[in-house]
Design a protein around this nucleic acid. Structure first.
Length: 435
RNA sequence: GGAGGGGUUCCCGAGUGGCCAAAGGGAUCAGACUGUAAAUCUGACGCGAAAGCUUCGGUGGUUCGAAUCCACCCCCCUCCA
């Protein structure tokens, strides 16, 4: 197996390295042969979100460089809850729920790495397979004995839980670090895994595993963490008005996903290209230079959206997302054919069925709020008052609020049944009457 | 088990009997400006088209009137045992 020695340099150029244990030795270790590394993903929901994308893609980067990735799904740790940098104790989920999530996460994780590429084919492992079997006394004697509580409470990741007035940490969550450390030692023993990667919030857990592997297996293993993705304006990455951006297309449509990336701020977009795409740092620098030289709108966001959407949702998902975007934002939705409308629905443009005969006294605010265009009728009302609502290109205002039947009258529909409603600059919803 | 502190609208955080649907900040939404950026400015920000209705851990109570007072209960934190 040929390994690519430029991996660390590439990761550095992308800004993807937050911390590394024994830097020089790790670089040497990786350059001397194909290594096995792992990254854990706890089932905390029925889908991963884009917060997991950086580690996921980094596993892929290691695989492309000739190393063997293990994606660990935390069937056991997901039952406990990682306290790292969490302000509050978390609610435990039932074993049945977590088991269901494990299946989903396993399937998602599997999309990103190659399972059939010879020696460095990826594997998915579940820590419930070993943690689930260990008994308490063995655990306390063989594993727990290696951890000094004095050191554990010094970890930055649990400091605010320990020091902050009004918060605390249960023994259950406090133990999480030990479980994750044990994972690393176990994978080191059974798979010869010598590197763990993870978000920078995982540093404390990873170093715990490094120490434990040395004590238990007398082997040197390494850790590498990835930076927390931050935005220049200080707001949280990965959230929009509609909530978390999920990887599951059933939870976040490819169109919404594409739009999320397209809306990336200039100040973040080149960094994100390096984080989330496989374009080389040199190519990305060229894009940046070209954007700087040109006036007006940069091309970077479109490239980012295209690359990431294709990566997650495939060419089909990307095509659908671009089709909707083109139809809605090109400014000439009057050009759409009846087939185009049908296609937009299939592509995942938010849409719903409308029965004009039931509208009656229903205020327009309620119709749009019920369709999910706004969190409440109040917000729709605000938009109506500011002339921010358009139906098939025609402005509607407060006067129309109590006039839903007329607004959605058949003679105002496109092709007799479609109403494309725009609220604000970016929110679209397609209402269609039944055929 | 004992002593003390605390639970306020998405988050942080004011508010100790009426002027409180509840200060301020953040987040979010809409408008202007733009490039479906950023920054800035404006408006909204419990629900409701409105009349009005429902909130300040829970349940009762005092009062003309409670987020604010009382009782009990639940949860969290600190210290002691």
């Amino acid at each position: 197996m040929v390994v690519n020695n430029d991996l660390i340099a590439d990761l550095q150029a992308r800004g993807l390295i937050a911390q590394m244990s024994s830097e020089d030795e790790l670089a040497k270790h990786l350059s001397e042969g194909s290594r096995t590394l792992y990254c854990g993903f706890d089932p905390t929901a029925d889908s991963l979100h884009i917060g997991s994308l950086v580690p996921l893609l980094t596993l892929k980067r290691f695989q492309l460089a000739g190393h063997k990735p293990l994606a660990l799904v935390g069937g056991a740790t997901g039952l406990i809850g990682d306290p790292s940098f969490k302000a509050q104790e978390r609610q435990l989920n039932t074993p049945e729920v977590v088991a269901g999530w494990v299946d989903k996460i396993r399937a998602q994780v599997s999309q990103f790495v190659d399972f059939d590429c010879g020696q460095n084919s990826a594997e998915v492992v579940n820590n419930l397979d070993w943690i689930g079997k260990i008994n308490v006394l063995d655990f306390l004697r063989d594993v727990g004995k290696h951890f000094a509580v004095n050191a554990m409470i010094q970890k930055e990741s649990v400091k605010q839980r320990i020091e902050r007035e009004g918060e605390g940490i249960s023994f259950t969550e406090f133990t999480y670090m030990i479980l994750q450390s044990y994972d690393f030692a176990e994978l080191n023993k059974r798979n010869d895994c010598t590197l763990q990667i993870g978000g920078s919030d995982q540093w404390g857990n990873i170093t715990g595993g490094i120490d434990l592997s040395r004590r238990l297996n007398r082997s040197q293993v390494f850790g590498l963490t990835l930076p927390l993705v931050t935005k220049a304006d200080g707001t949280k990455f990965g959230k929009t008005e509609a909530g978390t951006i999920w990887l599951d297309p059933a939870k976040t449509s490819p169109y919404a996903f594409y739009q999320f990336w397209l809306n990336t701020a200039d100040a973040d977009v080149y960094k994100f290209l390096k984080f989330f795409t496989f374009l080389s740092p040199a190519e990305i620098d060229e894009i940046e230079a070209a954007d700087k030289a040109a006036q007006g709108r940069p091309q970077a966001q479109a490239i980012l959206a295209r690359e990431v959407t294709r990566l997650i949702h495939g060419q089909g998902g990307l095509t659908a997302a671009e089709r909707i975007t083109e139809a809605l934002f090109s400014g000439d939705d009057e050009q759409l054919s009846a087939e185009d409308y049908a296609q937009l629905q299939l592509d995942g443009l938010p849409s719903s069925v409308l029965d004009p005969s039931t509208l009656g006294e229903t205020p327009l605010t309620q119709v749009l709020a019920d369709a999910g265009m706004a969190a409440s009728g109040k917000q729709v009302k605000d938009a109506l008052g500011r002339n921010a609502v358009f139906i098939n290109g025609q402005p509607v205002g407060l006067d129309d609020m109590m006039n839903s039947p007329a607004v959605f009258a058949a003679d105002r529909a496109r092709f007799g049944r479609y109403f494309l409603v725009k609220l604000g600059k970016k929110k679209y919803h397609l209402f269609a009457t039944a055929v």
